[in-house]
Design a protein around this nucleic acid. Sequence first.
RNA 1: GGGAGCUUAGCUCAGUUGGUUUAGAGCAUCUGCCUUACAAGCAGAGGGUCACAGGUUCGACUCCUGUAGCUCCCA
Length: 870
Amino acid sequence: MELSKNFEPQITDNKWYNHWLDKNYFKSTPDNREAYTIVMPPPNVTGVLHMGHCLNNTIQDILIRRARMKGYNTCWVPGTDHASIATEAKVVGMLRERGITKSSLSREEFLSYAWEWKEKYGGIILQQLKKLGCSLDWDRTSFTMDKEYYDSVIKVFVDLHKKGIIYRGKRMINWDVKALTALSDEEVIRKETKQKLYHLKYKLENSDEPIIIATVRPETIMGDAAICVHPNDERYKNLHGKFAFVPLINRRIPIIADEYVSMDFGTGALKVTPAHDVNDYALGQKHNLETIDIFNDNGTLSEAAQIYIGQDRFEVRKKIAVELEEKGFLLKTEEYTSEVGYSERTDVVVEPRLSLQWWLSMKDIATPALKVVMEEEIKFYPPKFKNVYRHWMENIKDWCISRQLWWGHRIPAWYDEEGNYVVAENEKEAIQEFSKKYGKSNLTIKQDEDCLDTWFSSWLWPFEVFKGYSNPNNDEINYYYPTNTLVTGPDIIFFWVARMIMAGLEYKKQIPFKEVYFTGTVRDKLGRKMSKSLGNSPDLLGLIDQYGADATRFGIMIASPAGNDILFDETALEQGRNFNNKIWNALKLIKMWEPRQSDTYQEENQFAINWFENRLDEVSKDVDNMMQQFRLSESLKTIYSLIWDDFCSWYLEWIKPGFENPINSSTYKKTVTFFTELMQLIHPFMPFVSEEIYHHLEKRNDDLCIKQLSNSKPFDSFTLSTGQLLKNTISGIRDVRNKQQLKPKETIQLFIQTDNENTYKSIESILSKQLNTSSINFTKENIAGSFTTIIDRDKFYVVTEKPIDSTNQKAELEKELNHLKGFLISVEKKLSNEKFVQNAKPEVLAIEQKKKADAESKIKTINDSLELLN
RNA sequence: GGGAGCUUAGCUCAGUUGGUUUAGAGCAUCUGCCUUACAAGCAGAGGGUCACAGGUUCGACUCCUGUAGCUCCCA
């Protein structure tokens, strides 16, 4: 069969993916093998594949594929998250395009649109993962709003409420004025924001002098309940207990003292607005201040503000500043940068607000979840994230779990007309509860309008995808849980990782996973985060089309150490594509030999075969170790170099028969075996090209995808060091040839001066072939008229037909000599230091002595050569 | 403001209990090659006082302290 010039992923990728699916290789059912399980972090159902997913899922696929080849029963579960805020926003947007507003719809109508949208556009990302080659068990695809999953979420809510862990309370929350919902603290992103600090004059009662306060939010003055100063602040001591008037509306407010105020910020006097600031709220509670909420849900001013009613908060800020200035209340403004909270989903400035919400008390369930990580029952890679985790868990606050949205799990609480409520799984049970709790029957009750935070469902993911809560102790949950490895970004360590650990311990009494691998953030070449506004997110599917899935996987994996950010650079994909091509060409070379096998014994191949076999064993062992420590980039680099350098550049050149000459048949067979093993090693990283080559190498009845890796064998270090000597010698003499500007076809005579003639004899035939020598001889003396070079500890003389150009030789030898002399001095200094000789370990001492001896003998050799030149 | 981490060749990174030649790799650069698998290639080469300043030690890229710069997390 004619092989194409280059590897063609466009043809190959789909072919093999479909073949693997047909063969059900990704499908898992419990059996007597050990399980290796990963649950995929479910992307938003609205999501499309971006670099973060690509990195994350490539890593998971590498782990899963390698485990599959190591004999585990691997199960990788796909799925999507309903992502309440994000999805609801998309649906609202879609409706707006059709001229429908959410408020004109009933809940049921809205939800039917939402489901319609989900069926039509949801889960595109899962199809895209197939392009990447992800070996997911598709029959297990889960969604956080699947019927059973939904019911489990509700049951968990009811259970936690019964245990007193979930409660209802009026507290300060983060309000998203665009999505019109509460947010948890974790959904608020703090960003440095340039603002203006307004210095405002408040009139004092019975005084002509005003008191000056500084604020970045002049639009909230109508909600002021007090002015607060530090009790020790001399400037204001006479004002404690006095009153001032809010500008424009002239409301009378007290001046209070509290140590909370910092004397050196602004003027040292703080306006207290309990309804619109978390700290002010606490202050208000402490001092019994009035809470005046001057905002509507959507961030416009309410009746309570008295002025600017119905206008947006930021519009009002501009207008009120002008009015304050005109009326003489504004003393000055200055530039001021501080952190402002923005909604993670809608990017609007979050409004702190007092609100009645559902809360989850975290303290008790956090304690065991902290313990399992600190004691490494769950291991974090890299371990630095343990600290981050501990810090958050030790300072954990209650979790606001209600959201004022329709798309999601509806809170299972029912209210009667008097505002009494019960929590129950459904309306029927709620009615029963009412009669039990309040002795009431035949009443009309209404279910809570709100939904639960998305993370309140995804924290059940590791067990509920196996129906571990809805159908406890089923065969699958017992087999697959706890899962093995969670691969995720550090940005959701609190949102998700911590809460899964809590839920796992609460409901399965077991950790949800044994290891967590935190990936880095993918950034662009300049180190900036990928973002829509910067337009620096590459089109992934475009890249896969252009370079192929293997090259894309290679490109993203080659420079991504665990926990460090990845600077994405398209040249890495080129490198991947070139690597594909290199492998492909090695295949072409070997296929050329296939019909040209003979039985003639080729002595020179024995060393090459023996060496490569050992090298393969050595690298297999290294890769095993690295994979266990999740050093994936390093593993890939190591295999890359094994294939490109050791196999292609050295081994294949060493055994390559002359032009149109036959190849020894056993050499050929060995080579096919080596190539197969190499494809096996690279397969988890680059599944398509390796599977394709596997089938080209020989006619096969099985597939590489499930071919089992053999256990690593011991290797012989003498053979490996001889191989290294051979490589060094070839490189060294090639350098001489280069410098003498010898054409490849011009032969040389090589003389070797060494104590290890036998070693060189075992590699003599390869040396001869690689260096195009007419003869190789051993000598005890200098060879006149030669070019001399020292490689490792031996001396080589190159004799050519052209006269030797020795002009550079002298300079080079002298350079080497100087280096060695300097080196020798440092070694001698060490050895003449008595304390070193006394304290250093014997091995270290021996090494230093050997260094000294080597350096001395080399110096002597160089001096001899220099003498000859003079 | 508190905490964590980073700083090694032009770029991206290794460097595993302090001593295996006065530091390694890939990419990029330079030189020579269209050699009968591969120019998306082959063969070579150059390039670093390991951020800075102290300290511990016989010995520091590696341990300690401080300084500067960058990143992240929390308030």
